[in-house]
Write a protein that binds this DNA or RNA. Sequence first.
RNA 1: GGGUGCUUAGCUCAGUGGUAGAGCGCCUCGUUUACACCGAGGAUGUCGGGGGUUCGAAACCCUCAGCGCCCA
Length: 709
Amino acid sequence: MSRAVLTIFKRLYDEGLIYRAERIINWCPRCMTAISDIEVDHSDDEGELVSIRYGDGENSIVVATTRAETMLGDTAVAVHPDDARYKHLVGKTITLPLVGREIPIVADEHVDPEFGTGGVKVTPAHDPNDFEIGRRHNLANITILSTSAVVENSGTRFDGLDRFAARQAIVEELRSQGRIVAEKRPYIHAVGHCQRCETVVEPRLSKQWFVKVAPLAKAAGDAVRDGRVKIEPESLSPRYFEWIDNMHDWCISRQLWWGHRIPVWYGPEGEIFVTGPGENAPVGFIQDNDVLDTWFSSALWPFSTLGWPDETLDLKKFYPTSVLVTGYDILFFWVARMMLFGLFAMDGVAPFKTIALHGMVRDKFGKKMSKSRGNGIDPIEFMDRYGTDAVRFTLARGANPGADLALAEEWVAGARNFATKLWNATRFAIMNGANIEGAMPAAESLGAVDRWILIRLNETVSEVDSLLERFEFARASEIIYHFAWDDLCDWYLELSKEALSKGGAVESQRVLGQVLDQLLKLLHPIMPYLTEEIWTALTAGESLVISKWPLASREYEDSTSKKIVGELQEIITEVRRFRNDQGVKTSQRLPGKLTLSKEISSFESSLRYVLRIDLPSDHFVVGGSVEIGQAKIEFDLSGSVDLVAERARLTKDLASARKDHETALVKMNNQNFMNKAPAKVVEEITQRLTATGADIERLTAQLSQLPSA
RNA sequence: GGGUGCUUAGCUCAGUGGUAGAGCGCCUCGUUUACACCGAGGAUGUCGGGGGUUCGAAACCCUCAGCGCCCA
């Protein structure tokens, strides 16, 4: 690492991309170090805006400031060149109050004549904008604050006072001199704070090392602009451009203990010697005390970890990497810097092809976790309570690209429940002989239910594949979750129970084994521990880690299985609803007559099993019935039909059918719709119209046949 | 001030032109040979307001309001 740092530093220096300069930098008087622009947090703070009269009478001008103490370092007053109010003053001097120094009045385009009085005090050593004005007008830079933000060298009695105490004292003194013409308090304005310690940052003139970013940033911007590097989700790329295209020169020296020491040595005559790896500075030279910004070395990560600056095999093979996954908050700190240095050091080859950005984990209300709010969540606690896989699944399920995730304990508990569900389902499957031995049965030898779950599996695999391709982890997790819980556990297992319990359902056992095998593989990256455990129990295989990722296969697709299972599901749901409305307990067996279409007639025993319907006896009396499409299920309720409930159920269905019928009808009667809508949609609506029409007819008949209560 | 998002069920969020979705929560019922960390059934939304485009808008455009993030 150290070699890499030395190498890149020297290379940049030799190419003139590292220089030392006096600049206004952000200085933290507590950390006693320079900090970069992005380490400064801005917040709207209360301060006061005081307007001070400089000079007297006709030759006076009023300036406003929130940092009165900086006036001790003023070396000019600036006005806009076109400002008629001050034309007569430009080029003259004015006496700086308290200090007594004569300072010039200069005209500068960058002064906003609309703001305040149109005159601004210029303190080049303590304000970045003033520094620029100072450069343009060759003003002196007078530093009047120490590194710990105490007034010094001002030649006034304020020397020795802390900046905030001095601010107050100076305003008081000016007030007593009658020089304060206005005070606005509180005055809300943006104040920079040190990201580490929240101390108010003090702009300070200082000699620092800089990276000249213009050429590097241009390359880094272009790499994304021309598509060599993709940012996912794309919606975050404007942020990248906005930043990289307007990047200021990067101050890389830090006055800290920790870090790579700047490899620059100074000779007795002020000579500068930069040492590369293995090089020594001439005798008598002294090394710079500062260290490098931590991101300077982090920026080397994509290639220094592969052995760079050596031309290693790893470097050849793994640079550039394919995907960098990280939080969007670190796009500028780290990602952009890796782009800068990667392109520079690796002959214009960007360090990765795709930058996949995820969001931040927030509390259950979507609020940022913070110490002051006390809403931090310790993932280890959740892992102890709900299991690591549950936490992993929760995070994956919430990981929408570039969007934040609200993490609530309830979500983790839900994920734990899912894990338990899988555990139980696999246990049940194993108990019933599920296996992955031998080849899969041919499609022709399988029933509709078996085929259906294989079709659903195939759909799930391909959907998950394409979602993962797009870093849509949340949706991929969701798809897997519902396939496992709804399709597999709630439907397939329930519909297969009868056959499995009777034994001899060899095909289904193999199918079930197959479905679980593939499902566990899909889930393995998200829930590695659980899936490994139950997969090895199911298959006696060595490990999921080294097994093959599922391949989507359309082998079992056909035109009928989905329709058949759909019908079965509808029948089962409607009958359950009927029983529920009638207050019939789930476990209570009822005699019933099933009239089924030819297509699903073979599922009669299966339906009887799931719905607990006994064969009708000789004295069967129809007490209530459910009709779904062609299917009719009649029950003997032994004369105890709950007519009120039944009427309510049918009335509700009728209302819903009428509503759907009505909307379809409106569309069909709309000539514009008929002319312009695609045929597919028209057909769909037509079908809906017929279906709802039939429903209305049937329900009306059923209602009229119902004896009055 | 510049940039960029968001506003959908009680909460947190999916849904980029064709009958509004998920998880949790809520209500009712339930010892069904996997699972109560469960099962079955149910309720809940003028998709922020207003305009427009379209046969059709939660989705596209304009506008207003509120909230957020990044940068200055």
